[in-house]
Amino acid sequence: MSDIPRISRRSLFRGVGSATLVAGCAAKTPTPAPAPGLDPAAPPLAGTALGPGPAPLRFTLNGAPQTLEAAPSTTLLELLRHQLDATGSKLVCDRGACGACTVLVDGAPQPSCMTLAHDVEGRGVTTVEGLATNNQLSPLQRAFIEHDALQCGYCSSGMLMSCQALLNRRGATDAAAVEHAIAGNLCRCGTYPNVVAAVLSVAKGGA
């Protein structure tokens, strides 16, 4: 902004190596697998520097292998929304504060706005588009509909991913556990109680 220079998070991303950066972002819930980039013992990527221009990247998106090029400063969310036209994950705060962009990376929920695209190299990413199989809604999706766990729906993609991760690790033991799992997912329409009810119904085997 003009005469007062404003440092944006994105311009900061550009100035530092990606490993340092991602190391600063804590995973918001305990996760079974180490989150990408969080393992300090991980070897450097193939020993070659990335960028500043587009660099090759491979990962799996909802089970489908992806081979593409992305600039190292690209976040996973930007890659999904702009390059892969997977617009289910939403950009709301762009700083890890709202959870609307939550995706699963090797099963662990991550805010994709705080994850660099190159940090999912070789990993498996699941987005809301990957929850249904063969056009069949998943039990969690059906429960969201049944319990009216969505109003405008803008938080729902991220909410679903946090809840799916909880169900995957069989953690939806009671309302408090669900509330904890979605503590990082903001909903302005106020669907929280219905989200909790939906998740618990799936955990109990209903939909």
């Binding site: 617009t87 950009l91 588009e129 509909i145 969505l150 729902s156």
Partner: peptide, 30 residues
Amino acid sequence: PRIEAAAKVTGAARYTHDQRPAGLVHAAVL
């Protein structure tokens, strides 16, 4: 239950932020 809910829980619902008409360019405001 909402009749449009399936689009919202699958990510298929396209909001304004998700529109990508051909040749789209992006604005920013000072």
